[in-house]
Amino acid sequence: MHHIVLERWSRGASALHARDPRAKIVPLLVFLTALATARRALPEFSAVLFLLLCAALLGARIPLLAALARAALVLPFAAVFAAVCWLSGDPARGVAVALKSYLSALAVLTLVATTPLPALLRGLEAMRVPLFLLTVAQFLYRYLFVISEEAQHMSKAAAARGAPVRPMASSGARFRAAAGALAVLFARSYGRARDVHRAMLARGFTGRLPTLYDLRFRPADAAFAALASLAPLAARLAVERIG
């Protein structure tokens, strides 16, 4: 089942996994800010950041190619914007958008792939992120699983009833079948999400995801947070001086 890959990665046992979530969230914010505000020597800066993230992923024993591919899921969205920039005669801006989107996605993925969601939420909560945002995040997360489970059940059911694996003759027919399936998928996912929510309420859920994670910010966490926050800043200074 593919939807649990991230979940499985996040339960690894590397030194990066062991860090307090806050010690990873702070460097991520620094990383994203340094990247978003970079103007000069962007390709060089991006290359350095890319290598940093690859090193982090390898150090955390996350399958590198699979992680890179997953982060590429943002590219179709970025590509639309990049294409618009390109067509309006600003190709450099198009490239910048694509680079920044991809690296941001990869950085977030690195955090999520090395931090179990309950720990991540707990860290954000400790950093005073409003509770309702966290609640929305945790529901989105759980319901994404619900939708993907339902989709898998339905595609198995369709295959069992002999739905063609090859594309159907007319693309119109294919579209209608897909649209019908999508409508049913949403209805079923809604029903399932409602059941999940009821099951949570029945066990005393009050809007806060309980967690088995006790946060403890150790010296190693402080050291890691400092180093990992400095890395993108140092890289940017160095690249801009040379470039």
């Binding site: 979940e7 179990p116 059941d195 009821r198 099951a199 066990r203 005393g204 309980p210």
Partner: peptide
């Protein structure tokens, strides 16, 4: 399947007591 929503069985079973 709707009732078991935490990543591991132990965490799921502990969901109620922690809410309490």
């Amino acid at each position: 399947e709707s009732q078991l929503f935490m990543p591991t069985v132990l965490e799921d079973v502990a969901f109620g007591p922690i809410n309490r």
